[in-house]
């Protein structure tokens, strides 16, 4: 798979038995739908807030950021925001293949993580997981 943002080479990062795809050039992260549900189960989050199809049904967010194609099905992804304080802008595959966090978004997560204690909502906990995995980044 190629990076949907910069076409760079993507490596697979396996952390605590969860796989994430990580672009070595722009540091963006692809969270596959199957892996997301594995993580949700591990964290014992049974809510619908982590289902990729549910996330894809969230209202589209107007953003200046360029539209990206899904690395799996090549269809244009939708921009939505996840979590609350901090809100993170992500691209979600409308077919339900997965989520894309831009390199900048992951950086934003890392920056805000330190200010906050345990994240309140389910989406926040996934964002925390990302922050934990990409502790240092490229």
């Amino acid at each position: 798979m190629d990076c949907p943002a910069c076409k760079g080479v993507v490596v697979v990062v396996e952390y605590q038995r969860i796989e994430l795809d990580y672009c070595t050039k722009c540091y963006g992260v692809w969270f596959d739908a199957g892996e997301l549900s594995l993580l949700a189960e591990r964290l014992d989050l049974r809510g619908a807030a982590l289902d990729v199809n549910q996330i894809a049904a969230l209202p589209e967010k107007k953003a200046a950021e360029k539209a990206r194609g899904c690395p799996i099905c090549r269809k244009k992804m939708k921009k939505v925001t996840l979590g609350s304080a901090p809100e993170v802008l992500v691209d979600v595959c409308t077919r339900g293949d997965g989520l894309w966090f831009d390199g900048g978004e992951v950086g934003q997560v890392l920056g805000q993580l330190k200010d906050k204690g345990a994240a309140a909502d389910e989406q926040g906990r996934v964002i925390d997981f990302l922050g934990e995995v990409f502790h240092v980044r490229g």
Binding site: V11, V12, V13, E14, Y15, F134, H135, V136, R137
Partner: peptide, 29 residues
């Protein structure tokens, strides 16, 4: 894909097309 076992326990799987002689672990650096 090649397998890199980082000391911090993170596993990296590297596609054959990745150039370069080293890779930095995004978890521990």
């Amino acid at each position: 894909y090649g397998l890199v076992n980082c000391e911090c326990g993170t596993k990296l799987r590297v596609p054959p097309k990745l150039r370069g002689s080293s890779i930095r672990c995004p978890h521990c650096g």
